Simulated scan of single mutants.
Amino acid sequence: MKPNRFLQIVALGIGFLFLYVPIVSLVVYSFNESQLVTVWTKFSVRWYQALLEDDELIAAAWLSLRIALLTAFASVFIGTWAGFVLARMGRFRGFTLYTGMINAPLVIPEVIQGISLLLLFIEMGKWLGWPAGRGIFTIWIGHVMLCISYVAIIVQSRVRDLNPSLEEAALDLGATPFRVFFAITLPLISQALVAGWLLSFTLSIDDLVLSAFLSGPGSTTLPLVVFSRVRLGLNPEMNALATLFISVVTVGVVVANRFMQNAEKRRLALAM
């Protein structure tokens, strides 16, 4: 084996160990009976049972799940149009401002975004009476603002790689631009939409900073609950919760990857 090849394999192995050994140990210790998260005693599912009886954690998880789903769909809907405009509309008047507004959430710290939105909602509530309080709606707005940028960048890069001859052929055959977009362009960028949806869902369900600024009484998300508990000490119940999330995410990634592979095969078949 060549030395360079050997070094590549070693570096890759170290990287995978660094990434996945902590995750594997977390999953293993979620089945530990001991209350000490680093001391193994014997196999048990007591912490999964305790998790099912934890009403605060379950309520926070359902709230985060609802917000993440709403955020993912809204971000894909708005971000797709934003990315399409960036890729196809050329340098129109105000293009620089438009690009800066789309990319701003990528470079502005979340703390600044959270404070800005908090002050905005406070002033709107003072002058307009809306929103009356902070809750699921204000959190959702903050998460959508953050995730649109990621979806727009993904869609923009995918649209630029498309072969325009397919769309031009549809236009020559009499299809309207909207018909071409929904019948030709949208299926071809479906992989980017799935990737943007998954990224938006992950960013939303994992967000702590924006949620801390935009949440109110009765709207505590899962990251906020976990963060408040971890500050008081590690709890094996958190290992069980993390294991469930890892399982759900793994299944979701496998399904999405399968869908993207099938979509790529259909795209290649159509291109041929």
Rank of each mutant, 00 (worst) to 15 (best):
R46K: 13
A59C: 12
S228F: 09
N103K: 00
F213M: 11
G79E: 11
M145R: 05
V159I: 15
P3M: 03
P217I: 10
I148D: 01
S116G: 13
A68H: 10
V225F: 05
L36V: 15
F18P: 07
A132V: 13
L268W: 03
A169D: 02
S116P: 02
R179S: 14
L232T: 15
D172Y: 04
F95C: 00
P164H: 08
F181V: 10
T41S: 15
W197Q: 01
A242L: 12
I108K: 11
L7A: 15
T220Q: 13
Y29S: 03
E53R: 14
I139R: 02
G83T: 06
V251Q: 07
S165W: 02
V24L: 15
D206F: 10
A192R: 00
V209C: 07
G129Q: 14
F16W: 15
L268K: 15
L52H: 08
L52G: 13
A59G: 09
M260C: 08
V225L: 08
A72R: 08
E167R: 03
I141Q: 03
G15M: 10
T220L: 07
K42A: 11
R266F: 00
L241D: 08
L119V: 13
A175W: 04
P223C: 14
V249W: 12
L70D: 11
I102A: 04
A170M: 02
G218T: 03
I108Y: 08
M101I: 15
G79R: 04
Y20C: 05
S64G: 09
L268C: 01
L146Q: 08
L222D: 07
R88E: 12
Q156L: 10
T80Y: 07
F84S: 15
M124T: 10
Y29F: 15
P3N: 12
I112Q: 02
I58D: 05
D55L: 04
P223Y: 12
D55G: 09
A74Y: 00
F259P: 00
L63Y: 04
E110Y: 06
I14S: 08
V155N: 06
V254P: 00
R179Y: 06
A60G: 12
A175C: 12
E110W: 03
A61L: 11
R267I: 09
M89W: 12
A59I: 12
A60H: 02
S75I: 09
F227M: 10
V159D: 11
S204Y: 08
V225E: 08
R5S: 13
A72H: 10
V10G: 03
R91W: 08
R231E: 15
N257W: 08
L244D: 06
W197T: 05
L224F: 10
V76H: 04
G79M: 11
M145V: 05
F16A: 15
L97C: 02
A11T: 14
F213R: 09
L69W: 05
I115D: 06
L19H: 00
T221F: 05
Y20V: 14
E168V: 04
L162P: 01
V111W: 06
Y29G: 07
I139N: 01
L12V: 08
V45E: 10
V230G: 10
E237V: 14
G233Q: 12
S228W: 04
Y48R: 10
S165Y: 07
G174Q: 06
E168C: 02
L222Y: 07
V180Q: 04
Q261E: 14
L69F: 14
I67N: 01
Y20N: 04
W197C: 04
I205S: 09
T80L: 12
A132W: 14
N235V: 10
V144F: 09
V76K: 03
A192V: 02
Q35H: 11
T176G: 11
